[in-house]
Amino acid sequence: MAGHEVSVRLTVDGTARQVDLDPRVTVLDALRDELGVMSVKKGCDHGQCGACTVIVDGRRILSCLALAASYDGADVTTAAGLGTTDHLNPMQQAFADRDALQCGYCTPGQVCSAVAMLEEARAGMPSHVSPDVSDTTVDLTDAEVRERMSGNLCRCGAYVNIVRAIQDVAGQDVARAGGGAA
């Protein structure tokens, strides 16, 4: 049975977009191939690297495994929506300050993941290294940051700098600070 195109509305980095899509198109491919939004990266297309991480309605997800049709109406934030080169989000600034990147290809996903991760920790989400999963306050140790960021691979090996960058801003309200689209 051949598929018919579906109409999908997405708010991308604060801008409402509408596009008619083959239902096979993922949020990732809709952004990159249909809407020209390149601030989200494709590293594996199978949920194995985290490069395509975006924040949807406040939660970090992998856009490569998200069919766009299923996310009709979603509010999508990419790294370009968190800040601009002239007005970086505090997380982005911390990444730059700590040299928490080399090739830069995993970086937008790392940044989005880190911003949403801090919100999760603030909300009391437990992790694999939490000493007691019933405890709703998270002590965001380096081990906690590493575990919570483990879905974002970095092949250049910037992990230690990324952890420092995240810890620099862990006490701040990153999600709502900084420039770019609200």
Partner: peptide, 21 residues
Amino acid sequence: RMRVDAPAKVTGTAPYAYEQP
């Protein structure tokens, strides 16, 4: 010296091969 391409990379706006218009 801070990486000159850091602002572009942390915002995802540095154009890699597939992203050239």
